[in-house]
Amino acid sequence: MSAVAREPGRLPLVVGVDGSEPSLRAVDWAADEATLRGVPLRVVYASLWERYEGTALAGEHKPFEEVRAEDIVAVARRRALRRHPYLEVGAEILAEEPEYALVREGRDASALVLGTRGRGDFVEMLLGSVSLAVAAYAECPVIVLRGGHDNQVGAGPARRVVVGVGGTGKNSAALRFAEEEATLRRVPLDAVRAWRCPAHESVDHPLLAGEPARLHEEQAVTTLGEALEDVPADIDLRRRTVEGPTRHVLLGASQDAGLLVVGARRDRRRFGLQLGRVAHGVLHHASCPVAVIPEPA
C-alpha cells in the first residue's frame, strides 16, 4: 500500500474504513476536508484477521481477509481520487484492533474521520465499539459522521459551524478548531453557551421572580463574550446564550449545521472512557457531523 509522507505542518488527515457504505461516505467527507486544509489524506483499514487466519493457512494464496482488506482500501483510495484528482492519498492496512490502531494513527494526524451507521437504539450502541473509544482517547480532533449525515463539506448558511463554548475561555482548543473550520469553509460560526438556573435558587416572592435566572443569563453572556474576544474580525460570528442542559442546547443548534464542535477534557488518571456526558450525547444524536477536540487538562 502507498504511504503518505508526514511533513512538518502537513500532518495527514486520517480516515478509518471498513468497507461499509458509511465509512465510504466518510472518505468523501475526509477528501473534501483534506483538500480544504491542503494536507494529504491517509486511508486506514485495521483488523485482527491475521490472528485468526495466520500466514500458515495462506499457502500459495493470500488469506481471504487480506485480499478483502486490500480491496477495501483500494476502493476507498479510488473514491477519494475521483472526488479530488490532485489530492495526495495514501493507504495502510494494519493487523490490529481498530480502536488501538486509529488512536495511534492520531498521534501524527491533523484529524481522524470516522463513519458510523445511522440512527436507532441498536445502531447507537454499536457506535461505542470504535468511534466512542477513538473520540475518547485520540490526541487529535476526531470527526464522526453517522449514516444519516451529509457526506459533503461545503459553503453556505446551512453549512455553518457550531461550537459549544464551555469554561475554557480564550484557551479553548475547540473554539480555535471551529474558527479554522469556519474560515476554511467560508461559513458563519455560531458560538453557543448554555446556562441554567439551579432549582434551589428559585424564589417564591413575586418581586424577586426571575432574578436568579437573569443573573445566570448575564453571567453566560459575559463568559461567552470573554471567550470570543480574540475571534478574528473577518469571521461571521454569531453568539447565542440558551437556557437548558448543554447537551440539549447543542443538539438543537446542530439542526441544519454543517459541523458541531465540542471540547473534551481528558483525565488520564481515570480509567474508562474519557468523554463527558455532553460529547457522548452529541456523538449519538447530533443532526450533523461532530468534531470532538481534546482540551488541555
Rank of each mutant, 00 (worst) to 15 (best):
R265C: 05
Q219V: 00
Q219D: 13
R240N: 02
H216F: 10
T246F: 00
P245K: 08
G164Y: 01
F177N: 07
G210A: 02
R186Y: 09
A227K: 00
A220V: 11
G258C: 11
A227E: 02
R266Y: 02
H248V: 08
G263I: 07
A213Q: 11
G263V: 08
A279H: 03
Q255H: 14
R277V: 13
L189E: 09
V231Q: 06
V262G: 04
A257L: 10
R196T: 13
R193C: 07
R265F: 09
G276M: 06
R186W: 10
L228G: 02
E217W: 04
A173V: 01
L259Q: 10
R159L: 04
A264E: 05
V192M: 08
R186D: 15
T241V: 15
L184A: 10
S202Q: 09
R268N: 04
T246A: 15
E201C: 07
L224Y: 07
E229L: 06
A209N: 04
R176Q: 14
L237H: 06
T183F: 01
L189K: 12
P157R: 01
R269D: 07
A158G: 11
D236A: 15
R176V: 01
R265L: 14
N171C: 05
E218F: 00
G167K: 08
E218W: 04
R159C: 03
G252M: 08
G252V: 12
G156V: 07
R186V: 08
G164E: 00
S172F: 07
I235W: 04
Q274R: 10
E226N: 04
D190H: 14
A257K: 13
H216Q: 05
A264D: 06
E243I: 05
D230M: 01
E180D: 13
A209Q: 15
V162W: 00
P206C: 03
K170F: 01
V262T: 09
A257E: 12
A191D: 02
N171K: 14
R239Y: 00
L224A: 02
H200P: 09
A191T: 04
E243M: 11
P206E: 03
D236P: 08
A227G: 05
E226S: 01
A279D: 05
E229Y: 00
G166F: 03
K170P: 03
G272L: 08
L175C: 08
H216A: 05
D236F: 09
G244P: 13
N171Y: 04
Q255T: 14
S172C: 09
L224S: 01
V249I: 12
A220L: 07
Q219S: 15
R186K: 15
E243H: 12
E243G: 11
L260C: 12
G164R: 02
A182V: 12
R268Q: 10
T183R: 15
G272S: 09
A182Q: 05
V163P: 01
R277E: 12
V231E: 05
L273S: 07
E201F: 10
H216I: 01
L260F: 13
Q219M: 04
T223D: 11
A257G: 13
R159M: 06
R238P: 08
Q219T: 11
D230I: 00
L260S: 10
H248M: 11
T168S: 10
R214H: 10
V203F: 02
L215W: 13
L224N: 02
P188S: 13
E179P: 02
V231D: 04
A191R: 11
G272P: 06
A194V: 12
E179Q: 15
P157A: 09
E218R: 14
